[in-house]
């Protein structure tokens, strides 16, 4: 019975799940990356305020992974 239901599942639903996973997992990945970079940036900024600009740029670099995820999600759907 279960197998039959699986077979009848709408492919667009699977696409939506795939798109969700692409964005969600990319978000988690970049979050993990940003966690340490952000901490390091704050640490450096505490001692040298002029590190703010560099720190900010470094912190958002992993954000590009989410953009890849978003692009993949758009391509899927």
């Amino acid at each position: 019975m279960v197998g039959e239901e699986m077979m009848m599942m709408d492919p667009s639903g699977l696409k939506a799940i795939g798109a969700g996973l692409a964005v969600g997992l990319a978000g988690i990945g970049s979050g993990l990356g940003e966690k340490d970079i952000g901490a390091a940036a704050v640490g450096a900024m505490t001692e040298k305020e002029e590190m703010f600009g560099k720190g900010l740029i470094m912190t958002v670099i992993p954000e590009s992974i989410v953009i890849f995820g978003l692009v993949v999600a758009l391509l899927i759907s």
Binding site: D36, A39, A40, V42, G43, A44, M45, T46, E47, K48
Partner: peptide, 16 residues
Amino acid sequence: SNYAYATARVRAMKSN
């Protein structure tokens, strides 16, 4: 431990 924060801060301190 907070390696990322501590080491970055210490490196900034060293540059001072």
